[in-house]
Design a binder for these strands. Structure first.
Lengths: 202, 202
DNA sequence: CACAATAAACCGACCAGTTGGTATGTTATC
DNA sequence: GATAACATACCAACTGGTCGGTTTATTGTG
């Protein structure tokens, strides 16, 4: 049972490995052979489950990255009535993560990395990636509306527009952190993002 | 004179072509052969001027992208006393450009593209890229301070932190526009960024 | 001013290694 | 015994990079 073949087990390991390599490297920058090697399987197994490299990438987006986005950005805001506090809570969570597993944070947001690399190169990639951003923005927009109703968010703002601005701010900040690896600069970026969020309070 | 050899002419054409291809594609995604072909030169010429692909990339950062950043983000804020209005002016300028030369805008910010792709892969790239971000942030910080003195910017904000948050917001917004090619969504992202900037007014 | 010497600019065939992908297996499971 | 789950050998195309050579411009010298 452990050494023999196991349908979903191998597939999952391929996806997990691909996510890791696409995240730490890039899509075009990692070869199928790397995935095969690091996953401890063979090319035959990979091509048995995925038609090609692109299909593997699509699966990583739809099955792995989507789950991450929902887990870290959608769920925590699902029932929020004070989205600004909750967003700042997420930032706190990132800071904790940075001390425990710095590598994961240092390589940036998997969604943004893939989006910036592939959205202009492959329309099938792009469509799947916008779908994730959509979900993120929708969750934010809903939370902002709820916040307005509860009096925790400025009435005057346009929830839809500000939602995408928050996504932009988050992705931009994570991207800057990835480039400026220096601890001091990271703190600066972090407090800048927090400052912007605080401005949304009434 | 036109058909014969011309030292700096070829070098400049190589750089120009490389910038274009790295921008529309990516660094790892474009081959030296592509650069050679599109520039209408030969491999010998390219390797005569640059030690290798990486060196070509460094030159693109230092000579082409730096100039762009200074031109569009540093200079316009150099003598600003109302940075928020000036930043919004830059956004207006982008909107004009989008109608004239949409391709240039659609492929995102060359600095951010390269930074997100290469900063975790090559330290020499990273150092050159942070230097550009530094210049951008410094210009913003200075303008924010001047704005505070002139009463056009909220006194309570931390100029240093907010400066990097603005860079994050800009890069994030440009990145989102690149992924969400749809006109309607672009408008939303644009007005979201503007809304955030407006919050910095006293 | 001629003219050889030197260096810079450029060419294109070639190289070893890698790429994504395939074809043909073998082995286990229902 | 059919089908899913792998393994392995292989392929053409392309990768970044090298290398010997040719062409042009510059410069020192008589």
């Amino acid at each position: 049972m452990t050494e023999t073949r196991q349908a979903e087990g191998t597939r999952a390991r391929i996806l997990e490995t691909a996510l890791d390599l696409f995240h730490k490297g890039s899509f075009k920058g990692t070869s199928i052979n790397q995935v095969v090697e690091q996953a401890g399987i063979t090319k035959g197994a990979l091509f048995h489950y995925f038609k090609g490299k692109n299909e593997l990438g699509y699966a990583v987006v739809e099955e792995c990255i989507q789950a991450q986005i929902i887990e870290t950005w959608v769920k925590p805001l699902a029932t929020s009535v004070d989205p600004i506090s909750d967003l700042i809570g997420i930032l706190d969570h990132f800071e904790e993560m940075m001390q425990e597993q710095p590598e994961i944070v240092e390589y940036g947001c998997p969604l943004n990395n893939l989006a910036q690399e592939m959205s202009t190169q492959d329309e099938d990639f792009r469509l799947r990636l916008v779908s994730l951003y959509q979900q993120w923005e929708t969750a934010l927009e809903k939370a902002l509306r709820a916040g307005k109703d509860a009096g925790t968010v400025k009435e005057s703002i346009d929830s839809e527009a500000v939602a995408s601005a928050i996504v932009a701010l988050m992705e931009g900040s994570i991207g800057l952190i990835k480039v400026n690896r220096d601890r001091g600069h990271i703190r600066k970026i972090d407090s800048g993002a927090r400052a912007f969020l605080e401005l949304l309070r009434p």
